[in-house]
Computed example of a mutant assay.
Amino acid sequence: MSLLALSGISLVALAGCSSDGSSDLERLAMPDPGTVEGESILSLWQGAWIAALITGVIVWGLIFYSVWRFRRRSDDEIPVQTRYNLPLEIFYTIFPIIMVVVFFSHTVRVQNEVLDDATPDNTITVVGQQWTWTFNHPYDGENVWEGGDGNRIPTLVLPVDETTRFELRTPDVIHSFGIPGFVMKMDVMPGQQNHFQVTPKEIGDYRGNCYELCGVYHSRMLFNVEVVSRADYDAYLQGLEEAGQVSDEPIIGGSYADEQVGIEEGEAE
């Protein structure tokens, strides 16, 4: 019966295989990165899993070998009880340290790529506030902004093939700014100026959200992402200016955050 059940599960799994499924397996369930920096994060993710699986196979193999090779037989005497094995214990101490050093060095390398302080092509001040997002874009010496409210999800527009730096700010509590398609997120903390940068590889649409439980309406902190051409990006910024969404400085909370709509008094109670 168990063999029949296992065969059935295998058939179902094979029936579900496709090119997309193969890609998911190759990426080890990580989304297909939409940015140059995301490719480095994906490589780090894959390398960590491969190293962990190799280590696991070696350890499991040694365990099963020892269980089988040194099992007690009916006519055997009790084997010699060894208290320690100095070479083996040294190996078990040194090898994990080497693994940690290698993992740490690759993590720092990828972190430096994502948090690179080189001058970006664009800088956007991202403000997380209870419970929506505001995106501030420098334009013609001014600041143009796009923000959401309780009735509307805001849209973050980015130019393709250009490096954009996100300056993360919040006037209230801890949020977390993340875009799954970019395989990157970072906390947005009061009084702390966090940042990271991305370089989108192709035109397309993505989804983003807050990854930190930030209050009762945390689930509303969604936003859309549109990667467009430079010409479309310039037209978008001009449209914000013509719509009157202009300020001298980036909007970080304040009156705009206090004017959130869509949460009825009865719902808030």
Rank of each mutant, 00 (worst) to 15 (best):
L3R: 11
A5G: 03
A5H: 08
L6C: 05
S7D: 04
I9H: 10
S10R: 07
L11R: 03
V12W: 12
G16F: 03
S18V: 15
G21I: 04
S22I: 07
S23P: 02
D24T: 07
L25T: 12
L28S: 01
P31W: 06
D32P: 09
G38C: 08
S40N: 15
I41S: 14
I41N: 04
L42V: 09
Q46P: 00
A48E: 08
I50R: 02
A51F: 07
G56I: 08
G56D: 05
L62V: 05
I63T: 03
Y65N: 06
V67D: 11
F70I: 02
R71L: 12
R71F: 09
R72D: 08
S74Q: 07
E77H: 01
P79D: 07
P79Y: 11
V80I: 12
Y84H: 12
E89Y: 06
F91Q: 10
F95H: 13
P96I: 14
I98C: 15
V101Q: 09
F103K: 01
S105A: 14
S105M: 09
S105Y: 05
S105V: 14
T107C: 11
T107I: 11
Q111A: 07
N112W: 06
N112D: 07
D116N: 07
T119A: 08
T119S: 09
N122M: 06
T123Q: 04
T123S: 11
I124G: 13
T125Y: 09
V126Q: 07
Q129K: 03
Q129N: 00
T132N: 08
T132P: 00
T134M: 03
N136P: 06
N136V: 02
D140V: 01
E146R: 00
G148Y: 10
N151L: 04
R152K: 12
P154E: 11
T155R: 04
L156V: 01
L156P: 02
R165N: 15
L168M: 11
L168H: 13
V173G: 01
S176F: 03
S176T: 03
P180G: 07
M184N: 10
D187V: 13
M189E: 15
M189K: 15
G191L: 09
G191A: 10
F196D: 03
T199F: 04
P200R: 14
E202C: 00
G204C: 14
R207W: 04
L213V: 12
C214I: 02
V216H: 08
R220K: 12
R220P: 02
F223V: 06
E226L: 04
A231R: 07
A231C: 02
A235R: 08
Q238Y: 10
Q238A: 05
G239D: 01
G244R: 02
S247G: 14
I251N: 08
I252C: 01
G254N: 11
E259N: 09
I263S: 13
I263P: 05
E264K: 04
E265N: 11
G266F: 01
E267P: 01
